[in-house]
Design a protein around this nucleic acid. Structure first.
Lengths: 235, 235
DNA sequence: CCAAAAGTGTTTGGTTTACACCCATGA
DNA sequence: TCATGGGTGTAAACCAAACACTTTTGG
């Protein structure tokens, strides 16, 4: 059982890694993991491991895939069921119980033990694509958040820039994605932002698609900000 | 290792099942499966099992999920990695090597051994959703096929009726989905249809979405065929 | 000629993008 | 007041559903 635990800290995607204290791959970074106990289901085992490593209850936890190629573990044939979890930023990195050290590492990262580079890559791609058609991005956020904070999640995970104005409309327009709390906050300078919490939807409609996945014609103007009046709006 | 092998026969979706010859669940239907051999990867084991059961090479084969809830096997804790394959209609159902009997069963079906009802349901849902954004429907077709035959695949898997005219345009308009062979055939009565083969795309763009997933307003007219002139086209 | 299936064209309406523009606050 | 971020309005382009209509065969 291996866990891909992702969070966003300081505007960058991080993954929880442990430094191995025993062979093989002693001293190398690896995904946290453990074993399934007697009488425990796979999902339950993943949730327990997650709690042991981070002290958190799973906001979102899903099975990723199972890895069992010969040679992935030098000790012999070992199968690993990988799980993916998306977590809000944590107060403390918390060290695992049995690991030499545990810490959040910014992505991209490579050189992990076993086939964990590949597992991490699969987890990342799964997270990226799930943001498109599920309201999962809220799992990275605290219980109450602003639209700009939610947009930062998308921009960080997709490594893209999104138009704040269109993003706002799409998110608030997708039924059940977010619900306003009625309160506002000032995060930085500027006009106060409304606070939202997760809605009840499990699927987004319409979906938010990653830019670049569509076949676009070249736009006439390539600037990224309003700067010149292109046209007078007569109203 | 369990296999969800789907095909379309006589306009209905079928799954390959074996009748168990040994306990537990003797005499009940179950998904075909087997064990991973030494030095064999998971994907390779699934491909080998598929070949043993059907004599076919995998057109499309992908890992579905891993099942390991306690109690799924009365003999004790057993983990099963499930694979999903979509196959063209086969000449012979072919009996498995070690199974008492193997045969294609039309869906829906229930009462399978172990947790195979749930595995089959997961496989079906995966197949349904993959038809939306991948050109996988062609895996159900022979090497050359007509657009109407491809549409039948979608209609069968989605249990929906699709507009033949819009479907034709969407399929031939999605880059790399299908390529015309240049030949035509007459399948039934009516105008001859062009033959196509799979294209090189791995992702559909734009995607074909299942009807009903979107939030639709009530249409003004509920008839299914052209029958009355609604409006004169002045041109 | 008629029925039936294949395939094209058109209209309508929703979605996306690219912006202009207004709003509310701290400095 | 100005800079800054929050949020709404709008037009062009694109996409999808509904359906009229043409083409090409068999009976």
């Amino acid at each position: 059982m291996d866990l891909v635990l992702l969070t966003i800290r300081q505007g960058a995607l991080h993954v929880l890694l442990i430094r191995r204290g025993i062979p093989p791959f002693t001293g190398q970074w690896a995904l946290p993991g453990g074993f399934v106990l007697d009488g425990e289901g796979l999902d339950a085992a993943a949730a327990r491991e997650l709690h042991e490593e981070t002290g958190l209850l799973p906001g979102h936890l899903e099975q990723l895939a199972t890895y069992g190629d010969p040679g992935r573990d030098p000790r012999g044939r070992v199968f690993a069921v990988a799980y993916l979890a998306l977590l809000p930023d944590l107060p403390v990195p918390v060290a695992g119980s049995d690991a030499a050290a545990a810490s959040w590492q910014p992505l991209p990262i490579a050189g992990l033990a076993f086939d964990h580079d590949a597992i991490l890559a699969d987890g990342l791609e799964r997270a990226r694509s799930k943001l498109e058609y599920s309201p999962l991005a809220t799992a990275f956020c605290p219980p109450e958040f602003t639209i700009a904070e939610l947009r930062e999640v998308y921009e960080t995970v997709w490594r893209t820039r999104l138009d704040p104005r269109n993003f706002h409309r799409k998110v608030t327009g997708a039924a059940g994605f977010v619900e306003p709390t009625g309160e506002t906050v000032i995060r930085d300078r500027g006009r106060p932002a409304q606070l939202f919490r997760r809605g009840s939807a499990t699927l987004l409609h319409p979906a938010l698609l990653r830019p670049g996945s569509s076949s676009q014609l070249t736009p006439m103007v390539t600037d990224s900000e309003d700067h010149v009046a292109e046209r007078e709006v007569t109203e």
